[in-house]
Design a protein around this nucleic acid. Structure first.
Lengths: 209, 209
DNA sequence: CGTTAATGGATACTGCTACTATCCATCACG
DNA sequence: CGTGATGGATAGTAGCAGTATCCATTAACG
């Protein structure tokens, strides 16, 4: 397959594919002559994955690169691969909430984690986001929403477990890792759309006319 | 309150506040002289909301503006207000999936909606995203994840209902609308962090060393 | 009452991201 | 042999989210 066919098969413009090659998102094709390379099935799959992450899930290109690198490093254990992907997904945010608000949110969140028996290391990237979010919700006067933390956590735990079971049927380690990452990222887009639809439906029943 | 105090109270730099004023995200303060304006409690709340949406939820400034406008238009019915916010949140995406893939995804999604008895208009902004996501998942060979659509939908429906009940305790219509919008957007950040944590925990139990 | 610092308003500039566009020296194919 | 595509390099672009600068006031302190 040459670059043009790759482009036709996916709808991605040739210059964009060249850009992904430059950035190292897409591995180089095999060179048969100084200006002739051939791409295979893996390139096609990879390119589709890139587009799904960039377009649908709105993941920045730089982070897609990190995620793909974590997928390709099959020397490291699976749990660590997932950790890297998580880190790539979580922007390091400077603390915005006030100190008191964050302190309160921190205890609430750690309590929740203890209550659910989750084993989460204190440097988990998502922890900071969760704490800041809880703090922000309180500061914005939405304490009643915060009171659902447990309900959210339970629901999330339930289907994350389902998801990991499903994904565990993958034959090879590589495919398993890929499924986890795709599931994490596209799963989020999925859930978020479902949420909007559910909301629209409920809002229609409750408040329409 | 003058702009400097607003800045000190929120940690947002003065030039940034000026920028939000320029862009119409933040209403003008009351002018007492040609170069002296005073801002009140509402401005403070509004500014905090803007920062939460921009920083935590990563909503683009232009869309925050639309969302705030939908909140401020209290002449229109609540359901329509929510619809506008949803529209602001959903980027109009050009179809990326192949026609067959999208057709299949479309029937699957509409079936789901019928099954759940949701009332969703066909132009609902989230519908397109959901369909494209399902199509992408199939194209990427993740059919087993798609098989959870129903489980996701059920869980989502359950806590969306809870959420709306909670939010309905708000005394005024304005506050209700604001709560719905904050809940929709920050709730998503919340769920997404919880999901990462749950995943980390389960992955630790299952695959660590 | 004079001086210093802050303010509102306008305009310009910056850094970053995700591409596009252009060029050019090969190749492949009819 | 000519035409069009290719790989590779370099340069340019549009949009976004602020920053920076300037200016003519005005507030606040000593």
């Amino acid at each position: 397959m040459r670059i043009g066919e790759l482009s036709r098969a996916t709808g991605v413009p040739v210059p964009t594919i060249k850009y992904y090659l430059r950035e190292g998102l897409l591995p180089q094709g095999e060179l048969s002559s100084p200006n002739q390379a051939s791409y295979g099935e893996p390139h096609l799959r990879r390119l589709r994955l890139i587009r799904a992450l960039v377009e649908l899930a709105q993941v920045p290109v730089a982070q897609v690169k990190e995620i793909l690198e974590s997928l390709d490093s099959d020397a490291v254990p699976l749990h660590e691969q997932i950790g890297r992907a998580h880190r790539a997904l979580t922007p390091t945010r400077k603390p915005a909430a006030s100190d008191e608000a964050r302190a309160a949110a921190t205890t609430q969140v750690t309590d929740l984690i203890t209550r659910r028996g989750w084993s989460v290391e204190p440097e988990a990237p998502a922890l900071g986001t969760l704490i800041e979010t809880v703090a922000a919700l309180r500061t914005l006067g939405q304490d009643n929403l915060v009171s659902f933390l447990d309900a959210y956590a339970e629901a999330v735990e339930r289907f994350t477990e389902l998801e990991i079971d499903a994904v565990s049927t993958n034959p090879t380690r590589d495919q398993l890792a890929e499924s986890v990452v795709i599931g994490t990222i596209l799963g989020e887009t999925l859930i978020s759309s479902l949420r909007l639809l559910a909301q629209e439906s409920i809002s229609a029943h409750r408040w329409k006319a």
